[in-house]
Each structure stands twice: as C-alpha cells, then as structure tokens.
Design a binder for these strands. Sequence first.
DNA 1: ACGTTATACCTCGACACCGATGTATGTTGG
DNA 2: CCAACATACATCGGTGTCGAGGTATAACGT
Lengths: 177, 177
Amino acid sequence: MLELAILGFLYDAPLHGYVLRRHIAALTGHVRPVAESTLYPAIKRLEKAGLLVRATEPGAVAAPRHVLSLTEEGRTELKRRLAEPAQREITDENHWFALLAFLRHLADPSAQAAVLRRRLAFLEEPASFFYEGDRPLRAEELDDPFRRGVLTIARATSRAELAWLRDTLASLDGVDR
Amino acid sequence: MLELAILGFLYDAPLHGYVLRRHIAALTGHVRPVAESTLYPAIKRLEKAGLLVRATEPGAVAAPRHVLSLTEEGRTELKRRLAEPAQREITDENHWFALLAFLRHLADPSAQAAVLRRRLAFLEEPASFFYEGDRPLRAEELDDPFRRGVLTIARATSRAELAWLRDTLASLDGVDR
DNA sequence: ACGTTATACCTCGACACCGATGTATGTTGG
DNA sequence: CCAACATACATCGGTGTCGAGGTATAACGT
C-alpha cells in the first residue's frame, strides 16, 4: 500500500522524500499515519529494485534533497500493481482506496473496468461480520447496538459503492464502443 | 486488533484455537484474513502475559484441543483496551469495527459513550483524501472518476456513521439519567 | 487399501512496520 | 542571542505478520 502510493505519486512528477511524505500523509494519514522510519526504507527498497532513481539536489530550504523519479521499470511496475492487485487490495478498504487514488494511471479503460469488476464481485457476495452458524445476520437481528452499528454503516458504504461502481463501469464501457 | 478479537471472543466463553480462528475469520476474514501462523503466536503472547490460560482436552473429532479461557487479568485488560483505545483503533475503520464488535463488554454506558465520542470527534474534523494546498477537495471538484469515487463512498460512510453515532449516544445518555 | 478432506496445533525464516533517536541546516520568535 | 521549529534524511532494535512447511488424528469416498 505504501509502495503503491510512492509509485503513484512519483508517476505524476519527481518528488523528494519529504514532500512525498506530506502527500502520503494527506492521502491516508488521517486514517493510518505513516512513520518516517517506514517511508525511507520503503524508498530504498524501491530504489534497490530499480523502480526509482534518486538525484541529490542542494536543499532549497535546508539539508540536501534526494529527488526521486520513476524509472521505466517503475512505471511498468505501478501499472502492473494497479492492473493485478492482490486480493487484499480488493477487500481491504484502506488498500482499495489507495489503489483507486491512482487507478487513472492505468490508461486503458477496459483494464480499469476489470479492476472495478473485481471489487464489484467482492461486494456482491453475501458477507456479514456476524453469523448464526453459517447464516449471515442482518442488522435488525442483533440486540447489541454496537454490532448493529457495524452492519448499518457497512451496508450504507456498500450501497454507495455499488451505485458508484455501476455508474463508473457503465461510463467506462461506453468509452470502449 | 487480533489480540482484541481473541480477548473479545473469549470473554463470552472459553474456546479452543481452531474455533477461535473460525470466529475471527467470520468477523474480519472477508476483509483481512488472519493466518494461522499469526493466530497461534498471538495466543501464546496473551498466555505468557497471563491474560488467558489453556486446558488440554482430548479432541472431540481429532487431535487434542487447547481450550482457552480468560483470566481475571484478561478480563480487566480487555476492558482497558476497549475503554482506552489507541488513536489508530479510532481512525482505522478495520480496527474500529473490531472494537465496536466487543464494545458491549464494557458494561458502563458512559464509558461506551466516551469511546463513541472519540470516533465522533474524529469524523467531525474536516478531512479529505485529496487537497489543493491545505484546502480539502470535494468530490465535485475532482475530474478523476476514481478519486471522486473515494470521496463519494467516504462521504456516504461518514453520513451513515454520524447518524448512527448520534442516535446511539442519545440512547446511551438516556440510560444514565 | 488409499487418497483426500477436516480437525487441531505448531515452527521457522523473511520482512514490513514502528518508536526512539540521531544528524544537519535554515528560519522564526522572544 | 538562543531556543524552538521546520526542513531533510537516516539507523536501529523490537515486534507483528505472513507463507511455507510440518505433525498427528479421524472420517469419508472409491
């Protein structure tokens, strides 16, 4: 997820680590803050893998900056990760939102639609958080107000997302023809 | 999050690891599966910390079972974790849902309400995923349909959750008087 | 007789992540 | 004049998580 965000932001323009960090904080920081000690090793990993290169520049304000830019492999890898996300990226809302934030970089509308359809399939299979044996329980069947809240909120999210997915898929399919 | 779920399920009744695993899979597995190699060490950690004890029973079907039950410290610790969640548990929906699933174990309505109010405060502060400088962008201002989706879905979730929070807080406060 | 599946638990190595801490520079406020 | 803060990057130890693999028993189908 972090690596995806790094690749995603650098796809638009070269950035140095400090600015990158602020971008990532804006994207996911209110939900799941990213520590510096996570970001810098992640940058090194991607650099070592040949997905990005760094150019040292004298710091505009303070210490020298390492301006990061994607290599051709980095651009390819981002598109690969967007086009073929692991199941976790589809099911976990945090990961999914990060993926959506950069899905436009996957230029092909039918490839974008294929990814959305995977999420659609996930949302359409009947699942709950609470079960009676194998039967998923509905909000109305729960006494616990907190568990009822979980289902109420999840249902509202699911409805909004299904509507958006169907809308967006329709307009993406329209582009093809 | 995993430890909370273990403590939460065991609070109701002693369980052995295999059943516990199925409970956890039902609760969060469709979003974020938990590997066995994560669960068993977690159980050991909690055992070592004196929060649970195990009793070996001949297996009903196959190999012998380790039936786990909470100690008094375990019960206290669960309540502590429910009453004083880290900020991450409040902001990350996955963690928050797991907490809500067991919040009923925190018997005191005003303690429950205090936790809900922390979530309320988080949801009420203006935050977005996308910014222009410091200004949070609204869905309508985005060209990117995928980023617009993120905001649309987040807004629907937020609305549903705010409504539920206010309802539930009202009825919890009613209990007090 | 044998392979498969389900039950039931466990270890190990690899690795991502975090908090604490460190280094260095330039700007701002008292 | 100096502390505080923002910029800018980095390391380190501890720990949680995962995938792969292992052990053992019992039921079921063929």
